[in-house]
């Protein structure tokens, strides 16, 4: 499932510092809910991980060891140790471990470049973490948390069903 251009278009206008602030708030909430999140990264904690949603005009760069996240507007020359590109919903599904990264790589829905050791450690750290965006982020909505939880859940279910459907049928080789 791709973000429709009509929804991503406003991101061209919204000031980067505002987007960055929201992202930091969400990142902080997830880090607080999962204190051991990056323990599996070992020596890769201070590296720069870039995530490029192919359906958004933005790029995100994370330094896990410093709990830093920065947002850049595309097109941009990313300075990062490892770069992952995929549609936004797939990146979020990977963060929650609801999709298998190798399967998305085989189907060419996901591309990775740069330091593969660091990226593999990041993939495994996220997969081991039991992040649940519906549960972890809904609290940010304060009194509207139940509504936020329902909306996030519905969007996620729809996106995952869409991914299963578009994966299609592969063939037996012999």
């Amino acid at each position: 499932m791709l973000i429709p251009p009509i929804l991503s278009a406003p991101l061209h206008m919204i000031p980067i510092p505002l987007i960055e602030r929201i992202c930091r708030l969400m990142f902080g909430r997830i880090a607080k809910a999962h204190p051991g999140l990056f323990e599996r990264l070992d020596e890769h904690r201070e590296k720069r991980f870039a995530f490029l949603p192919t359906d958004l005009p933005l790029a995100f760069v994370v330094v896990p060891g410093r709990e830093e996240i920065s947002v850049l507007r595309k097109p941009v020359d990313i300075e990062a140790d490892a770069v992952t590109e995929a549609p936004l919903f797939l990146l979020l599904a990977l963060m929650e471990g609801r999709c298998d990264a190798d399967a998305l790589f085989f189907s060419r829905d996901l591309s990775v470049t740069g330091d593969m050791e660091a990226m593999l450690a990041m993939r495994n750290a996220l997969d081991a973490s039991n992040i649940d965006l519906q549960k972890d982020l809904a609290k940010l909505a304060g009194p509207l948390a139940p509504v936020a939880r329902r909306v996030i859940g519905e969007i996620r279910d729809r996106a995952l069903k869409d991914q299963m459907r578009t994966a299609g049928e592969a063939t037996a080789w012999n």
């Binding site: 190798d102 085989f106 994966a167 037996a172 080789w173």
Partner: peptide, 22 residues
């Protein structure tokens, strides 16, 4: 089992040497 092929390397499966038909 057909749905698992999309998760497989090369999105293909084989019985390999077990059936040695190749």
């Amino acid at each position: 089992l057909a749905r698992l092929r999309t998760m497989s390397e090369g999105q293909k499966t084989t019985s390999g040497a077990y059936e040695k038909r190749w």
